[in-house]
Design a protein around this nucleic acid. Structure first.
Lengths: 200, 200, 200, 200
DNA sequence: CATGAATGAGGGTTCATTCAT
DNA sequence: GATGAATGAACCCTCATTCAT
């Protein structure tokens, strides 16, 4: 229990520090101070600085994926599903600004390892979008000339870019609901066979 | 001329090295070796490592902006203009993979300074999209309920995410033309007043 | 008794670990693991890492000295006595390779403290040789021009160097008996008044 | 020339510092300070701390071997040759106390690498003794029942042990000449066929 | 202008030691 | 007494930057 506690305290501190200073600029002692543990304590739970980054990603992102998939399973309409994904993503990013930056900034990082890791892992996440689109195509709701793997990137990229600058400018301008509505209205109109046919 | 030469040799070397190793992992000596100059020589042209990054961005991205704006001035149809932007962006990213990574990876990095810098600078670039949309709205081609500053992010984000994974998976799968066509077909259908009204 | 048990378990574990990894490279946790106690337990029996080293030396070497002196007291012939010392030393080193290395490697180490310590302690051990030689000189068996304190170092050094490389090369080549015979045949011939006068 | 200078300044400083504090206790900054260079400068000439140790050994010991072999080539009498070796060894150790300790203390150290290294390298050195003995056996001067590879260890060990405690106790008591004479008188008497047959 | 040897601050990591349980 | 999680001082090494040549 105590160890559990400390492990997540470090993860959470690291998420905050990485987001604020960036992986390379962040010092282990920053994380330690933020987590209110000694520097050395961190190495009881992680092998090295890089391992902390991976763990932050693994653990925190895992939660989002899990949560999103649960919600999606309760809904059949591919249009509603796309909306769920968008809202979940934006909510998660808004709720955990620190994490948002870690995902967006750090995991676009250099190391091959991380790239592969992300590719294996984020595929799961963005793959959800492609799956929704494919389902929509089967039910004749989405245009069959849309390539799911291109569209998923476009959709994810749109959401990602918007939450990227969240802190800076969009902070007070738009709510998650407004943004999701705009993006959805564009994409649904863009990929539906009959754009006038909107979900109720 | 010789100095000019050396300056751009360093910029070009830095672009390559930053893309390959990342800003923080890249060493000045790596850039010097790649540029075939002495380490110290770099400091005759740049104040510090960080200054090199800014310069890479400034100079290389400047070219793209300039080029894109020139092409756009020759075309009036907002739908064609959006297509021009998409194609120009994808072509530029494809042509200069190194630069593409520098923009995508490094400039999402760390320091507030860079963020502000980017915001001032990239605003110009993404601002082009917003301008196109506003024009289209005036001429009644684009839906008036679309928020240009949200749509510009969505559009840029879509393009950006697609070129991000370029190297990895899309390498051989799709041509720039195909990708641009897909994205355009989604976005135009998404934001036009009359989706069936496509440019010839 | 239980404490006694733990104390010697640690000593024995430390001897093994020091020999294998060297004093500085050995970690307290290595010793703890080898002794099957917790790291902290070690500090119930020893003041610090260095104290363990001293104790290893003190206890283990003490046994050898004691044993050797007992055997020597049963023999009067200085030539036989030298043989006893040589055989006892080689046997002890062969029997306890770990200890052998600790003595040879670690106690030539660093700190003045240890040097003085060794000087005080090993003097007892090598002093045995000097004493044997002095006795032999009194009985007219050993040459009177031999300086006992030089000869003792030469004799001990010869034995020490031979057991140093024991593991490596001499492992299978020579038995303790053979080696002792060779060394003795050289030294006795070297320091006797009448080299042809060998003990039966 | 300048680099040469700095390289040897570091070697020499390291020899001194290693001898004084021991390899593990010595800090890089100690060596740097002693050599009057910056810490980082050391890494322009050596890969790591351990590499410095190897280099100290390699360079300094190399000189001794070279010098000793040159002198030996000028002398045919195996008894004189043994004397030359003893005197050269003792002189070298006396002249360079620091080096003496490095050889004796540090190179008995742990790492397999160093052991192998030493075995390969010191074999050359102690091998000289074995060779002298073999030659003496061929010319009928040394006893044929002596095993050269045991005798070489005994002889080297005797010299080594004596110079080991040099600083401590023998400092003022005996000169190199006296010591060499004693050791030689023991060993020559010990290994000659006719002990009374001494070189003039 | 150009060089690259030299600098030295900075930080990741280890591990002897402590102490609450 | 015994534990082992936690501590934090210590140190090797890197690399951006400088400057004498």
């Amino acid at each position: 229990m105590k160890a559990e506690n400390k492990h997540s305290k470090i993860i959470s501190a690291a998420t905050k520090v990485f987001a604020k200073k960036g992986f390379f600029t962040a010092r282990i002692s920053d994380i330690a101070k933020e987590a209110k543990v000694a520097d050395g304590t961190i190495y009881l739970y992680f092998n090295n600085k890089y391992d902390i980054l991976l763990s932050v990603f693994e653990e925190e992102v895992g939660k989002i994926v899990e949560n999103t998939e649960k919600l999606l399973s309760l809904e059949d309409d591919p249009r509603k599903q796309l909306e769920i994904f968008a809202i979940q993503h934006l909510l998660a990013m808004k709720k955990n600004r620190h994490l948002a930056e870690v995902i967006q900034i750090e995991l676009r990082q250099t190391h091959k390892i991380i790239k592969e890791y992300r590719d294996n892992n984020f595929s799961n996440y963005t793959g959800i979008i492609a799956e929704i689109i494919r389902n929509g195509q089967k039910s004749g709701i989405y245009r069959s000339d849309i390539k799911p793997d291109l569209a998923k990137r476009a959709f994810f990229g749109a959401l990602d870019e918007i939450s990227r600058v969240w802190n800076a400018s969009l902070e007070t301008n738009y709510s998650v609901k407004e943004i999701a509505t705009q993006i959805l209205s564009i994409f649904l109109a863009g990929i539906q066979v009959d754009p006038s046919n909107l979900p109720e």
